[in-house]
């Protein structure tokens, strides 16, 4: 029997969120991007993450990759405009990190933000949580 009947998903206060279920962690003009606990939970067991190369420039709302679970395939979208400065290569061999630790070792991209105004349109942890329980 399931150990935890109703699992609690976490949404760290210090992160920003978008409605396509990506989060950003901002440090100066760099943002770390991944998918939220809600998205990881909805996908179930992640089997593959397809990510762009470092150096790629993408606009806010552009598709930056694909995530596959046993059950489904979903596109990943840029929460902000910027140049990709690092990609989490560990996800190639350990896609399950997205399920195990989406806000830590399961991160996907680091980007250099082109426009910090992009952050203003994003949701707080509280607002995102309200959005997903709707």
């Amino acid at each position: 029997m399931a150990d935890s009947p109703s699992k609690t998903l976490s949404y760290p206060e210090e992160l920003k969120y978008v409605k396509t279920h990506e989060y950003v962690r901002v440090e100066n003009d760099t943002a770390t991007i991944g998918i939220t606990a809600f998205a990881a939970d909805q996908l179930g067991d992640v089997t593959y993450v397809e990510l762009p190369k470092a150096g790629t420039k993408l606009n806010k709302e552009d598709k930056f990759g694909v995530i596959e679970s046993v059950k489904s395939v979903s596109d990943l979208y840029m929460p902000a405009t910027g140049e990709i400065v690092a990609v989490n290569d560990r996800l190639l061999s350990e896609p399950e990190l997205v399920n195990l630790d989406c806000y830590g070792t399961g991160w996907m991209l680091k980007i250099k933000l082109s426009n910090t105004n992009d952050l203003q349109d994003m949701l707080s942890a509280k607002a995102y949580k309200e959005f997903v329980v709707e």
């Binding site: 029997m1 909805q42 059950k71």
Partner: peptide, 23 residues
């Protein structure tokens, strides 16, 4: 639902697609 299943519409039925993990 009490066991934490994710329920989906399957052929008009509200059925568990997974509990903890398909794997």
């Amino acid at each position: 639902k009490k066991m934490g299943a994710r329920m989906v519409d399957f052929a008009g039925w509200n059925m568990p697609v997974q509990y903890k993990s398909i794997i």
